[in-house]
Design a protein around this nucleic acid. Structure first.
Lengths: 193, 193, 193, 193
DNA sequence: CATGAATGAGACTTCATTCAT
DNA sequence: CATGAATGAAGTCTCATTCAT
């Protein structure tokens, strides 16, 4: 009950932020569209910044939960594919959340460096997968931060494309092609000829 | 064409935009830091939006020029590597410009969708390279827009990493690794075993 | 009469009012620091103004009681000295109350003119003393309101000094000096040489 | 010219502050009554606090100039009387300024301790007069701070009385009586009997 | 009596933009 | 071209007060 209006505010804020931009969205507008008084917003969030940050953490945690579910699979390729699919599905299901993350990560005012913050926590498990793959010789032995950066952006690239053009997300050729590029980029180089 | 003061304004604006965010930077602050009167800014730019857009086009064109220089080379791998290096070097040399592009591309208020706008022009030539590579069988035959999207983001990924941590840009392992992943992702799949 | 919570509110209010100013102190802050809910404050006081006024009257009455205790003494000088000491002691013992009185008396929003209101009641007896002294020829025969005004401010002057610098209040030279000036100011002029 | 609107703002602010209290006066109201846009106020003063402080310093300096004019006179009594008259005249001529000083001095939010700040500077010369009087044996040899405090408040007492009831200021009995009390309070005690 | 989420008027302040000089 | 004082709409945030529980 106490949470009802707070959640309404967060939901409305997400919509407006994505439509118009964070700074361009007035707190009064958020409150009005959430059917709540101006003061109520500031009853739940000390200031606009805190509202934005709360939203950010909520979404990050949401993404983390969507991805990081136990998956028993000893085939590395299949394992990575599972994670990849889940993460992509989350983006397709929550297009606004993805757009919000992109927006906030690129605005210096929020002090969130893209790769450091956005995914680090929700991708802790990814580190293990990569290390394991490198030891087994299936993945190229490159610096971990470089590889993580690659994963992060390649995910964003595909997710953004699929969110902006949802019809692509439904075509097998695009789904397969995207993962193929992702995996090939990570894979160890095979002896050429 | 650009007066001295006009260029001063553009330079100062870029710095401030990257430090504090575009919206968070007041025109008065730009003018003051450029040692120019408030009104002068509006002599050169009809409004703030125009200042931002002028900067945007200036930077886009700057990037285009840096990359798109004729390169005679019949080896596809070597050709792509050259372009890759040039583009990356530009980012390392102009960190603020890269950050500005990222910021503007992710802010809905400017109506610039990342992949559509930012690089399209400066990467027209890239399309030819990719098509050619696919015909020759060296690159995977995937949908063009998917591949361009991949190129675009992989470039941003690497450039951002190198800009945020310049010391990495100087290590061969990182330079080579980044391009290796990029190329492998694009490359045609070889028969396994 | 006053509930425990009501008194807690009054005490807390006094502290905060003196520290930050009356208007600058939010009712919510008073309630919180008094370990009471926001609404509770408005159960005990119809509005903030009433809280302020209750405090004001409580303090005025407190000061009145401290001063106006019967004192049998036919020596005028000694009698006045007794009153003076009591009033001063009250201020030293209740520095915040004195400061609150000063603050409220000088804020036009509360419509309390300093000399008219603040002390009038608690100094009713003073009028008799002065009149008597003037008749006996010991005190200068000056207009009563002028003299009362003098008494009032000279008291505030000394009390404020002693409250702001408590170490002075403990030195005999300051105590004696302050009363000496007070008394001399009131006293009838003696023939010069 | 540049100062015109600024001074209008200061004048209007003084009036409103004295009528309604500083905090109770909205910046918008000041601007409107000064026939100036809201933004103009903040063009001249960074914030409300700075407006208040500017006013405060202006008034303090004004009072200082009104009092501290050279006065050749070797009779101490006459000299002090001159200063006393000037200071009092200033208050009668500038009732709002006096009231503003009283208001600000008693509001903890402005951090101005009454006796320390308000007059100290404008009464530097007073210190010399007192010291001299004490050496000559005309004034009681009491601690300097105590005496200054006495002067300060006795002045405020009389000024406030005369400002609140201007008709008194015009009666010789009140003028003479006020100074008589002031002087007697300061004067050295004569041998009794 | 007590609670504290909710209210909304209104305060302070910012800022893109204009315009007389 | 350049200036910077002036503008006023709009934004963020505060706070006394209410009311359902």
């Amino acid at each position: 009950m106490a949470t009802e209006k707070k959640q309404q505010l967060l939901d409305t804020a997400l919509s407006l932020f994505v439509e118009q931009g964070i700074q361009a969205t007035a707190t009064a507008k958020i409150a009005k569209q959430a059917n709540v008084a101006t003061g109520t917003l500031f009853h739940h969030f000390a200031n606009k910044q805190e509202l934005v940050m709360t939203l950010y953490h909520e979404i990050k945690s949401d993404l983390g939960q969507a991805i990081d579910q136990p998956e028993a699979n000893d085939d590395l390729h299949a394992l990575v594919h599972h994670y990849w699919q889940r993460a992509l599905q989350w983006a397709v299901d929550n297009p606004q959340k993805l757009q919000f993350l992109q927006q906030i990560a690129n605005n210096p005012q929020f002090g969130i460096s893209q790769q450091q913050e956005v995914m680090s926590s929700s991708m802790a498990f990814l580190i293990d997968v990569i290390k394991q793959g490198q030891q087994q010789g299936e993945l190229a032995s490159l610096p971990l931060d470089l590889v993580l950066n690659y994963c992060h952006y390649h995910y964003l690239a595909t997710a953004t494309l699929f969110v902006e053009q949802p019809e692509l997300a439904r075509q097998q050729a695009y789904q397969d092609g995207a993962f193929q590029m992702f995996w090939q980029g990570l894979a160890a180089i095979r002896e050429q000829a």
